Amino acid sequence: MIDNPDSSRRKPTPLGGEAGLEEARLRQQAIGVKLRHLFDEVVNEPVPDEFLAILRSADDKANGDKGGE
């Protein structure tokens, strides 16, 4: 059997206990912080020129179709 030193630090908490709820809240908060950071990085990335060209082309076609009605 392999002993894991980290496993001895954790004390089991009863389900629904205050310590268990607080631990779950802290985990959710940490996940939320990391997700917000990741989202902010993605939002701040520049849009590739090729994608902008596709969007412009789609806009031009849509505007051209509307003018023919």
Score class of each variant (00 low, 15 high):
Leu21Gln: 12
Arg27His: 10
Pro46Trp: 02
Ala58Asp: 13
Leu26Ser: 10
Val43Gly: 02
Gln29Phe: 11
Gly17Glu: 14
Val33Glu: 05
Ile2Gln: 08
Pro12Arg: 13
Pro14Asp: 11
Lys11Asn: 01
Lys61Met: 05
Gln29Val: 07
Pro12Lys: 15
Leu21Arg: 14
Glu41Gln: 12
Leu15Tyr: 05
Lys61Asn: 04
Gly68Thr: 13
Ala24Ser: 10
Arg10Cys: 06
Glu45Leu: 10
Gly68Pro: 06
Glu23Thr: 10
Glu50Cys: 07
Gly32Trp: 03
Gly32Ala: 08
Ser7Val: 06
Asp60Tyr: 09
Gln28Ala: 14
Asp49Gln: 14
Glu22Gln: 15
Val43Gln: 10
Asn4Thr: 06
Leu15Arg: 15
Gly17Ser: 15
Leu52Pro: 01
Leu21Tyr: 06
Val47Ile: 15
Asp65Ile: 07
Asp6Pro: 02
Gly32Met: 05
Gln28Val: 09
Val33Ser: 08
Pro46Tyr: 04
Val42Phe: 14
Leu35Cys: 04
Asp49Phe: 13
Ala53Asn: 14
Val33Asn: 05
Leu52Ser: 11
Pro46Val: 01
Gly20Phe: 03
Gly67Met: 05
Lys11Ile: 11
Pro5Ser: 04
Gly20Trp: 04
Gly67Ser: 13
Pro48Cys: 11
Lys11Ala: 08
Thr13Asp: 03
Ser7His: 01
Asn4Cys: 03
Leu55Glu: 07
Gly64Pro: 01
Asn44Val: 00
Arg10Asp: 12
Ala53Gln: 14
Glu18Arg: 02
Ala62Gly: 02
Ala62His: 02
Gly20Tyr: 02
Phe51Gly: 01
Ile2Ser: 08
Pro12Asn: 12
Arg27Leu: 13
Leu21His: 13
Lys61Ser: 06
Gly16Asn: 05
Ile54Val: 12
His37Leu: 10
Arg9Pro: 00
Lys61Arg: 12
Met1Thr: 08
Gly16Val: 02
Gly20Pro: 01
Leu52Thr: 06
Ala19Gly: 15
Gly17Tyr: 04
Arg25Asp: 12
Asn4Ser: 06
Lys11Gln: 13
Leu26Asn: 12
Ala53Tyr: 02
Thr13Cys: 10
Gln29Tyr: 04
Thr13Pro: 01
Gly67Arg: 05
Thr13Gly: 11
Asp65His: 14
Arg10Lys: 11
Leu35Pro: 00
Arg27Trp: 10
Glu22Asp: 12
Phe39Tyr: 15
Arg10Leu: 12
Glu22Arg: 15
Pro12Tyr: 14
Asn4Trp: 01
Gly20Asn: 06
Val42Met: 13
Leu35Gly: 00
Ala19Thr: 02
Arg56Ser: 07
Gln29Ser: 11
Val43Asp: 11
Asn44Tyr: 03
Val33Gly: 08
Asp6Met: 02
Thr13His: 07
Asp65Thr: 13
Ser8Asn: 08
Asp40Phe: 09
Glu18Trp: 08
Asn4Ala: 04
Met1Trp: 14
Gly32Phe: 00
Pro12Ser: 15
Gly32Thr: 01
Leu35Ala: 08
Gly64Trp: 00
